[in-house]
Design a protein around this nucleic acid. Sequence first.
RNA 1: GGCGACGUAGCCAAGUGGUAAGGCCGGGCUCUGCAAAAGCCUUAUUCGCCGGUUCGAUUCCGGCCGUCGCCUCCA
Length: 472
Amino acid sequence: MPQLTLFNTLSRNKEAFVPLTPGQVKMYTCGPTVYNYAHIGNLRSYIFPDLLKKLLLQLGYSVQHIINFTDVGHLTSDEDLGDDKVEKAAARLGKSAWEISRFYAEAFQQDLQALNIAFPTRFTYATEYIPQQIALLEQLEAKGLSYTLPDGVYYDTASFADYGQLARLDIEGLNEGARVSAEGKQHKTDFALWKFSPADQQRQMEWESPWGKGFPGWHLECTAMIFAELGQTIDIHTGGTDHIPVHHTNEIAQAEGATGQKFVNYWLHGEFLVLDQERRMGKSEGNFITLQTLLDQGFSARAYRYLALTAHYRHFLTFSEEALKSAQTAYFKLKRLIQKLDASAHQGAEAAEAAYEQMLAALCDDLNAPKALGQIWELVQNKDIGGQPKISVLQRIDQVLSLALFDSADLPENNAAEIPPVVQDLARQRWEAKQARDFARADQLREALAEAGYAVKDAKAGYELVALDSSM
RNA sequence: GGCGACGUAGCCAAGUGGUAAGGCCGGGCUCUGCAAAAGCCUUAUUCGCCGGUUCGAUUCCGGCCGUCGCCUCCA
């Protein structure tokens, strides 16, 4: 078994992975705030933890994994103090905040399924851990790490010696005023642990607390849920790079401030998906593409997973329709090649095993999926290795990559069910003309089919219809 | 202003101090009535620019140019 090495944001270095308890891994993945659909950039950040988890399983570890839902919104901006995204979405759609968060949480889970992302051991909902969050806040208060202002209870970051170490923050240089400004905040990095409900309005989501009616600060929930589900120290915590300077920095301050123990041994952060020319994709930017949009365009969700795996998780991935198209073409071609493997050819088993070890080694080197994919292509096209050893290796590596390499259901040729009868009729006529060697008529009918949006592909014993739009 | 990342063929993208993975697209050929599919072959003397270290740098160091991210909820 190769040694698993992971790039740890704490040290900014690749480190050999050693779990707290031999053979067991506790990992936590920062989940979405459920006030809208996830976009494909968000989803990228759930693919690499999935890859990591499956690699750990393949290496023989047992894995306890939590993904949370932030189902209580937080501040939208400085101008909207007291308002939050979930409640805002609720107002816009005429639903309750609870309905909104449940709806988008379910939509998110459907996206995960479409992308072959395994569900975690548990999904946790922030609103189901309010007592734990209050208890954590009490702990912090007892240690003198918090102070109360008219609008909420704040964390006193100056009293936590290592504050900002994860992000290597230069606190003095932080953009003055860019952070949420609150009257009376003692230090610009101080953040809300509990916000009071505005006196003049009734929030849908608010709870009683020793400090007054209100709702928890954003950072508190993750820490409280980790403590409740996984313990005070965990192995791995994953999220997007944008969480390093604020969210994860604050989580560490809360957790280690409260317990005095190391919170997380390995912090892993995924880099953004970016749009060519157009900067990052963001929920707030309004320029986001959902998985459903891609499906509507005729793309396979797994082709997007394939695309995500062609880039290293710690690097930007430039997304464009062209890139996705080429990924889907490659992905379908790879599956067709695999379908045609001759399982009765057994030669080259040793070389195949060596290739498998190399793939595993690539993945163990900080999840180098692009390299492993390259090795898959080389294996599949290697003429000295028979179909059987190839299949054996591909099945095992696909348990980690989850590309459904042996499932041909999403290939265009297997999706002919919804072709209109008229078109099918034309195709049949063409086939008959062709059998009668009336090629002029056959070509005419081919053109007619093209106009109807379908291409005909002949095989020896019959033909297939492929919709031109979805044959990308 | 502070912190940080990136710049490899038309596109996506690995990579190493010793002479550039893989995929897509393109081109050529085979096969096919045509077409598609499939198969075979081919596609960067070069890794943003300029210096330095070195026998040797795309890979290390310095400078410059360019692009981008975070510092406010965002993956």
